[in-house]
Design a protein around this nucleic acid. Structure first.
Lengths: 209, 209
DNA sequence: TTTTAAATTTTTGTATACATTTTAGTTATA
DNA sequence: TATAACTAAAATGTATACAAAAATTTAAAA
């Protein structure tokens, strides 16, 4: 995501994307042992670029100890705790700095959230948060959240697939607060929103056991 | 830092440490072009482990575009913005959860901060923040700050070398608030403390131009 | 002289080979 | 049967070779 993708991507980058997608799609479920040579054979590259991609995936937390990550409830809480801090701040920034144009984008996301297909909804929800985070104007913050994205995705799928009630309504409330340029309210609503997300995820996780 | 260092460290890990230290010590100042083969020859390894170490260093932000990072004023602001959020939260946690034992550790750090050598003071100050961050009990938060450490160090050296007035006093105030189990105050003091640090760094950066 | 193009060198990306370490399996002994 | 010790296999870490790409230099033309 951070990578600047040229037309003919390097083997390393291709490998990275394929493996990442496999993990995110559940083709390589949590706990799967990662073996360099096996992946190299499967993807048709040598071990060298595979290794690099694995290091990258480890850095994003998708691979831990040569195994596909299997995030625990604790991980989920930790993740949301950090998101609450960073995205709460971002929401406040957005209230001050977000240009009209991006406001429209948020509004569009909400609209798709109400009418789109499951796939579209998921994308729109991700974009909603992305636009707000961008408004922080803090590249380090953006990168930090970016790094968490994969794991977030792993969970967000759950939230949308199970169709959490009120999710879009909450987005709309946040949007209204930003539009009204009420930073404190936007921040508070974002924090509440993420807490709701967390609770919902936890609930589903537990019922799946 | 996160790595579990065995007795005989791998070439990759050795290379990582050497290069990192060179950057932090100023032996490889910001802007220095990174050439794999050159480093390999210098350190006596092949390019393979060098490459891996470089990727790691890129991940920590010490290397950008095959060059040693030269952080801008904007980077400094961004860094401190994130620290304020994460360490502010940590300070609040510390007020609730920090055990007696760690309180003593903080107190010790303050003592060294008043009496130690420049080297000792720098270590003690780092430890002070580290103990507090640990108390968040959030491994993701800890790792995130860990990842920023190198860059923080690059700047903190400045702060200590120029001997910022009140630095230790502020630590002591934070310590007192934590000891009194006043979370909100601890958080506020930590935020103020970091803002002071930022201002001091900015001031020095500017006067050095 | 400046600009453009060709050629050369440097640097990186990738594959492969080998040595070391880790893991799994097997046999032997208590 | 359980445990230890050994062996075999698999997997990783590292070095090296080579090809592709990028950067630099050199030469030629405007």
């Amino acid at each position: 995501m951070t990578q600047n993708d040229k037309n003919s991507r390097s083997a390393y980058h291709q490998a990275y994307e394929v493996i990442r997608d496999r993990i995110l799609n559940g083709d390589m479920p949590g706990g799967t042992k990662i073996v360099e040579e096996k992946l190299a054979a499967e993807l048709g590259f040598s071990r060298t670029p595979i290794r690099e991609s694995l290091r990258q995936l480890s850095n994003e937390g998708l691979i831990v100890n040569k195994k596909v990550v299997k995030p625990t409830e604790k991980d989920l809480r930790n993740l949301f705790q950090v998101r609450i801090l960073l995205e709460g701040f971002s929401a406040k920034s957005a209230a001050t700095y977000l240009p009209e144009e991006d406001l429209n984008c948020l509004s569009k996301c909400i609209e798709i959230g109400r009418k789109g297909t499951a796939e579209e909804i998921m994308d729109a929800n991700e974009r909603f948060h992305e636009v707000i985070v961008q408004s922080s104007g803090n590249s380090l913050m953006i990168e930090t959240i970016d790094r968490m994205k994969s794991t977030i995705y792993l969970f967000r799928k759950t939230v949308v697939l199970y169709n959490r009630p009120r999710l879009i309504d909450e987005h709309e409330e946040i949007y209204e607060a930003i539009k009204a340029r009420d930073g404190e309210k936007a921040k508070q609503l974002m924090e509440d929103h993420l807490k709701e997300d967390l609770d919902f995820c936890l609930h589903i996780l537990r019922s799946e056991r």
